[in-house]
Write a protein that binds this DNA or RNA. Structure first.
Lengths: 362, 362
DNA sequence: GAGTGGTGCTGAAAGGTTTCAAGAAGTCTG
DNA sequence: CAGACTTCTTGAAACCTTTCAGCACCACTC
């Protein structure tokens, strides 16, 4: 058994074991037992559970008392097997550690709750294998529907699921097919807005920090950046690619290290990061290596997470309507799973640049 | 149907509807269909699924081909109903938006994955009602076990679940009973360490920012703070309580507003926050209202989340072994659910003070 | 060639719930 | 008071899988 270990290495008061009073674990009471205890039939118990209005108040009370005293807990597997429907939605997130996605999740939860459903969160952690495992699991569970911000938007699984009857809505990712609903923010536009802002401020050598390149958001935001350059008549190599292994603070620090290490005449004067986690890491590392932000390096992030405004230098960022994204996606999913005339839709929101000190200075 | 709305209010390209090719939705193929297609019996298909080594390679291949071509997806409800066991753990988090808990969740996931199980994340969002709903749901789902950071550690549900056969491990909360395993960090000690640090720096009027008071962590960290005062021979009213409604950045800002509004001779010279989210909000607000940190106000946070180091003024904080916490909890849960000789344990880790600019200055 | 052992497959039962057609008891209506 | 409704309750079937005792077959062994 694991033993208490201190954060700092020194052992603390550690483990205290106690006798385990032999698990009662008697097989749980079922509807049958409740029926017997209440002196009614099995069907009546089920009615109390599912259509209480059909049961006379007296009988209902009897049954409910029996349930209470037996500690009856309905077996959801059996219910779902027979009834054929689940009361659960799942949101398969790209990175649960990124506040952007937890904000989206909050929107999902609100919408689901309003419809009387519960939400299970799953975290693929930017790993295609985990994503695939979770999709298999969710399909086997026969959940009502799946919301997903995919690692790989071209995965075959994304089409087989809905083809076999599990509705699936793409979140923060638009796909140009007619297989799914999707809810997204225009990432190309977001990239364009960010870079245009930097160009207006006079920057002509700009780093794009993001990766890996199989993540759609990374690619789209870069193409928006390229579009902005083109529009401004700047050559494509004005954008210096700094490819990261993930969209995390740690990777941002790594990028900062690389950037600060460049000779000053080749170093970009501004950086646009594919998300705020990268931007915060980059910012922190650059500042600690002695670069001034924004004088030596202007930084633009993406997502405008709550921490962006509280950073060492408040971060200019591209804001997305996070909760609305989640709410809308959940609503589309609910429509798809319950409305026979459902039409797939692609909803696109517009991002908005929030300018702060990291580009504009004080 | 929801319509695309721009983050900034201006409509964008909005919705694009496409015809929905009449859902095939043919009732999914079951083992029976697979058996028929492969020309074997039902039991054999089940064996291929669960004990492939009992089936001859030739037959197995036939069956697998049939599964493939029929798009067979095992019905997990039926499996679980018959087999009686789930392959899922759940972690019911206090606040999915707090990076501390997502780090814990990562540790849980790693341990579960190593044991071949999957994890569903649920978010109570500091709401006792939601927490209760989720516990009901999870019990009905008959998950293998539940990890929980409870809103209310004294809730009756926390004892009925294990009494009825669903193992439950408390995370980040030690309870002094013999009903559960628990994994926690010594919050009293953490509070004491934080305040001792401030006292050493000469502070004698210190604010404690945290709430609501039904959250165990808030209470424990405060009693640690009181203990430190006592030890130093300072009167109890050296600690000024600033009660918040939740442990969030927004509430931290609110507290900052209140704090900065105090006349200078009554304003505390230091603040200890019940977590880093509060501390970051407090820091941001105070700085923007013109207070210098740490000169006018020293700040200590709690959790040492990744963003603490990247804050406007890098934050002194009390670090906890987050992933280890999750991993250990999951291991205890697995032991409880599979080892008949399981003994409940209470594992306690030691927190560690990480000193940064927000107290010590540059 | 009768017995022995092993391998691979079968078929029916079981698991806990919901559903539904039908029965029972009670209430009106004329 | 008969008939027509209502209102409740019942019991069996169905959902899809896993499990397990047992059967068929084959290859050996003495």
């Amino acid at each position: 058994m694991a033993v208490g270990r201190a954060a700092g290495g020194a052992p603390h008061d550690g483990v205290r074991a106690r006798p385990h009073q032999g698990a009662p674990n008697r097989t749980a009471a079922g509807v049958k037992d409740v029926a017997a205890a209440a002196g009614v039939s099995l069907g009546t118990v089920s009615n109390v559970l599912n259509r209480p209005e059909l049961v006379s108040p007296a009988t209902r009370a009897k049954v409910e008392k029996a349930m209470e005293s037996l500690g009856f807990v309905r077996n959801e597997s059996a219910r779902q097997l027979r009834a054929g429907s689940s009361r659960i939605l799942a949101y398969l997130m790209l990175d649960a550690g990124n506040p952007f996605f937890t904000d989206v999740a909050r929107g999902v939860e609100d919408a689901a709750r309003a419809a009387g459903l519960s939400v299970f969160l799953c975290n693929s952690n930017e790993d295609a294998g985990r994503e695939a495992d979770y999709l298999d699991l969710l399909e086997q569970q026969r959940v009502q529907g799946v919301l997903i911000t995919p690692v790989d938007p071209d995965s075959a699984r994304l089409t087989t699921l809905p083809a076999r009857g599990t509705p699936l809505v793409l979140v923060d990712r638009a796909v140009d097919d007619s297989e799914h609903c999707s809810v997204a923010v225009d990432d190309v536009l977001g990239g364009e807005v960010a870079i245009s802002h930097l160009i207006e401020l006079g920057h002509t050598r700009i780093a794009y920090v993001g990766g890996p390149n199989n993540i759609g958001q990374v690619v789209d935001r870069r193409s928006g950046a390229m579009r902005a350059l083109e529009r401004a008549g700047l050559p494509p190599d004005s954008l210096v690619n700094l490819v990261t292994g993930a969209l995390t603070v740690a990777e941002g620090r790594g990028a900062g290290q690389r950037l600060a290490g460049l000779p000053q005449d080749r170093r970009p004067t501004a950086a646009f990061c594919a998300n705020d986690l990268l931007a915060l890491g980059l910012l922190q590392q650059c500042v600690s290596l002695g670069l001034r932000v924004p004088e030596d390096l202007a930084i633009v992030g993406y997502d405008d997470i709550e921490f962006a405004a509280a950073a060492a230098v408040p971060l200019t960022s591209v804001r997305q309507p996070r909760q609305l994204l989640g709410r809308t996606a959940a609503e589309l999913l609910l429509d798809e799973s319950s409305n026979p005339d459902h039409e797939h839709q692609r909803v696109t929101f517009t991002p908005e640049l929030v300018v702060r000190t990291s580009t504009r200075g004080t």
